[in-house]
């Protein structure tokens, strides 16, 4: 692997060999929060993204004290190697990783290919839930430099120093639908932030759930103007899909300045008076500025 930070990924074989390593804690984070109960990697824990990885009252990421408790209860200390994996190309595992990086955890990695690859390879599973020995975890103050808020996005929309990548489906980007099929409608309008370029997040992955090669990823993003010399802002509907793209750009391609706008379309699409584009042509606003 010639990724910018290859150590951020471990293989299913590596996990097989380290599943009972006392310095390693394996955590499953799924879109489908019941999947873990069907069977999971022996020794792994599960975090529920709906209950444990967000502040649903403030609509915010998990608070520092709550994160310290979650990690401590999971037997994780500051020098633990955390290996995250999940269903659907590690989608919500990426949401967890982004937050762990915000709070300064040094060694957190993905199992490349996630739950799908582990299952498809017929590797050993268990239904037993491990009871970890509690540990003490001290989180750093939140690093907001990997996150974008609304005001930054509003400025970025008119700046040539920034590019925005909308990682939702093409139908969401063009406003044909307000939310993915089968999910509740959560915004007033369809479309995208003016100037944003559409590259659906899962295009970064192969059919087996692993990440595409560095060369393929460079072609995917740079051919559409998502270049490493720009400040890149990724967004989706609620910030989870874009945390996956944030990971790809930051750690697999080594972009210096890339952020996740987790307010995403459910914030922008509900703003009074905010400009919205529906057509495919990017950069219309920047060309006018």
């Amino acid at each position: 692997m010639n990724y910018a930070r290859p150590e951020m990924l471990v293989s299913t074989e590596w996990v097989d060999q380290h599943q009972f390593d006392p310095h390693v804690v394996i955590v499953e984070v799924d879109v489908d929060t019941q999947a873990y109960e069907e069977g999971h990697i022996p020794g792994s824990l599960a975090w529920n993204w709906q209950k444990e990885l967000c502040d649903t009252v403030r609509r915010d990421v998990i608070g520092k004290a709550e994160l310290e408790k979650l990690l401590g209860d999971s037997g994780i200390s500051n020098d633990t190697t955390i290996v995250l994996y999940g269903d659907n190309n590690n989608w919500f595992a990426a949401w967890a990783l982004w937050q762990l990086k915000m709070y300064g955890h040094q060694d957190v990695r993905f199992m490349n290919g996630g739950r799908k690859k582990w299952l498809a390879e017929g590797r050993v599973l268990t239904k037993e839930v491990r009871k970890p020995e509690p540990a003490t975890y001290k989180a750093a103050d939140r690093d907001e430099s990997i996150r974008s808020y609304l005001n930054e996005v509003q400025q970025a929309m008119r700046s040539n120093d920034y590019v925005m990548v909308d990682v939702r489906s093409n139908d969401e980007y063009t406003g044909k639908i307000l939310s993915p099929a089968g999910l509740a409608e959560t915004c007033q309008r369809g479309g995208h932030i003016p100037g944003a370029i559409n590259i659906p997040w899962a295009q970064a992955c192969n059919e087996d759930g692993t990440f595409k090669s560095r060369e393929e990823l460079e072609t995917l993003y740079q051919s559409k103007g998502i270049a490493p010399d720009k400040n890149v802002i990724a967004y989706c509907r609620i910030g989870e899909r874009s945390s996956h793209t944030w990971f790809v750009l930051k750690y697999l391609l080594g972009y210096d300045t890339v952020t996740n706008y987790d307010g995403s379309w459910t914030e922008w699409g509900n703003l009074v008076g905010a400009p919205v584009e529906k057509e495919l042509a990017p950069n219309a606003v920047k060309q006018m500025a």
Binding site: V31, W91, C236
Partner: peptide
């Protein structure tokens, strides 16, 4: 759903 991949 094929995209985004949420369980329906």
């Amino acid at each position: 759903n094929a995209d985004a991949g949420a369980t329906i």
